[in-house]
Amino acid sequence: MTSSSSARYSRVSGTGSYLPPKRLSNAQLAEQLAADGVETSDEWIIARTGIKARHFAEADVACSDLAVEAARHAIESAGLAATDIDLIIVATSTPDMVFPSTACIVQRKLGIVGCAAFDVQAVCSGFVYAMTVADSMIRTGAARHALVIGAEVFSRILDFKDRTTCVLFGDGAGAVVLSASDTPGILATELHADGRHSDILCTPGTVSGGQVLGDPFLKMDGQAVFKLAVGVLEDVARSVLAKAGRAQEDIDWLVPHQANIRIMHGTAKKLKLPLEKVVVTVDEHGNTSAASIPLALDVAVRAGTIKPGDTVMLEGVGGGFTWGAVLLDL
């Protein structure tokens, strides 16, 4: 892919993230669960997931609060003012309210007026979906500086009597600013969904007549998710590389959705990528759904692990069943 004076691309100009201060180790969580008669242990959780700790938001902290903190860091990193942002997309499955969108609430809290703001709901693939939408809007001239956020408070929808799910998830937010450029940044993207598998990872409750109908807690068929995830992540990664005219050897860093260390290692193995090229934060963050990819990206960028000029593959898979990937030059 080559640039020209008339071409318009999008590049990551800034990254940011935020974790709520309350950190809960496996041992601390196991102690809390034991009080309710639910048995688990640090060893059991690490062996199955690679997770050692996660962060939970306090009861009075909303999804938008986490999103705003991550957004401010990303805007500062991009060297911009909040008023320079002309598009806000928030990927979340745990919004502040039914409506308006969390993006509109973030817009108000950042003091931005007039630009388009909306949410994207694709669960753990949400950030990849949101990045793809923002890239498309920048390429068509609809935006110049897009704020793309993944933010979640999954602790609000966990059943703490189900040890197979409650130990997996955490809260947090990550963000990037995508800016228009005449030099390619995002090289290729691809999104998919298969609603036939909508029941293997879902939160099947809804609100009607002032009451919750159905089950408001997260449900997951872990084995079914694992089996689907590794296969589709390999396929979409190869497809995005082909679109960009790149080879797997060109990938400097893989930043996958931080769900389970075994899924991440399985994907890297299929792509013949050494594990040293995989950015891993699931050990400290748990699965933060739509926040996990931008959180991991920001951690790696600020640590100097991912550097300007590196080629990075972002990929996610989540409830829906949804999946997708973004290949970019930082």
Results as ranks from 00 to 15, higher is better:
S6Y: 09
R8F: 03
R8M: 13
S13Y: 08
G14L: 08
S17T: 05
L19Q: 11
R23C: 13
R23D: 07
A27K: 11
E31R: 12
T40E: 01
I46E: 12
T49I: 05
R54V: 10
F56L: 15
A62I: 02
D65S: 02
L66I: 02
G79N: 09
L80W: 03
L87Y: 04
L87K: 05
I89S: 11
D96T: 00
V98Y: 08
V98N: 09
S101E: 06
T102W: 13
A103C: 12
G114P: 04
C115K: 02
C115S: 11
A117H: 04
A117D: 07
V123L: 07
C124W: 01
A142N: 14
A143R: 00
R144T: 11
A146M: 08
E152M: 10
S155G: 15
S155D: 12
K161G: 11
R163P: 03
C166L: 13
V167D: 10
F169L: 13
D171I: 04
D171R: 10
L178G: 00
T183A: 14
P184S: 11
I186Q: 05
A188D: 12
E190I: 00
I200L: 13
T203P: 06
P204H: 09
G205H: 01
T206Y: 10
T206G: 15
S208Q: 08
G209S: 09
G214K: 00
M220N: 08
Q223K: 14
F226V: 04
F226W: 14
S239L: 04
S239H: 06
A247C: 08
Q248N: 13
D250Q: 04
D252P: 01
N260D: 10
N260R: 05
H265M: 06
G266E: 02
P274R: 10
E276A: 14
E276N: 10
V280E: 05
N287T: 10
S292T: 11
A296L: 07
V299G: 03
A303R: 14
K307S: 09
G309F: 12
M313K: 06
L314R: 11
G320R: 06
T322Q: 00
G324P: 12
V326E: 05
L327H: 02
